[in-house]
Design a binder for these strands. Structure first.
Lengths: 139, 139
DNA sequence: TATTGTTATACTCTATAACTATA
DNA sequence: TATAGTTATAGAGTATAACAATA
């Protein structure tokens, strides 16, 4: 007799869907020369002007160390700038570079196309519902 | 002007929540000597009797190569058995070992406690709704 | 030829913890 | 002392592709 009803676990489905989406998205982004984590950071920097590293890490739910590496890669590609704050020289102000701004629209299109395809089984109302539930969990 | 409304992306929230859950769960499982991927495989083997590797890979949404490694670790710990099928000697039939069966209930409790805490912001109805939506996306 | 499972290789992603510089 | 950011280290998790054995 099995003791496990894995299908009842929310975590199981969350993991399955998230992994499938990430894999598909990673392939789509690869041709444009960036990874999923890099895209998320880039998009967040664009969406929230004047962010620093600690704030970005908090927004993405990862550590400072993890963010630091991702930012290194984005900076190597010259898609972002890191500017020391005038008010506090420990702080970096993050921003998109000219090149980053030029590239972002296409990346956003790729992200949206990927999402549209991936969540095609849900109608607009269901997608909004799912988004709302995830936001609520994220707190 | 920013072009990105990251909060509108389902993938953003999915990634955030999934990563948070996986990190918390990994910590809880670590003390019991296994990883998240190992637990998921173990639970799936228990839930679906007579699985082989290809079927397990399909159920978990990963490749055969990835599964092979996870199974190696579970076998090293003697939590599963791999038995060559009588009908087709290419095929392995996966099953929990005696030790695996003995350990599973506690691991299931850990998983459930972790989930209960993580999804505490959602009531039972919302959790069922979320599960249904994720299942629908997974197809 | 097709399928099952393994292996070699390489990445991405993340954490922990110690560190530097500044406040 | 506390905070911002970096770095060193380690490990989990996965993919791709080539491979051996079997069908």
């Amino acid at each position: 007799m099995s003791t496990t009803n894995l299908d009842g676990h929310l975590g199981y489905w969350l993991r399955l869907v998230s992994n499938q989406l990430a894999t598909a998205f990673a392939r789509a982004l690869q041709e444009r020369g960036l990874s999923v984590a890099e895209w998320v950071a880039l998009a967040r920097i664009d969406a929230s002007a004047g962010l620093n590293c600690v704030q970005l890490a908090g927004a993405l739910g990862v550590t400072r160390g993890a963010i630091s590496k991702v930012l290194d890669k984005l900076q190597d590609k010259e898609w972002i700038t890191r500017t020391v704050s005038d008010l506090d020289s420990r702080v970096q102000v993050l921003a998109l570079s000219r090149r980053g701004r030029r590239r972002l629209p296409e990346l956003t299109r790729v992200a949206q196309a990927n999402e549209a395809q991936f969540f095609a089984r849900l109608d607009a109302g269901e997608q909004a519902l799912l988004r709302g539930l995830l936001r609520k969990v994220a707190g």
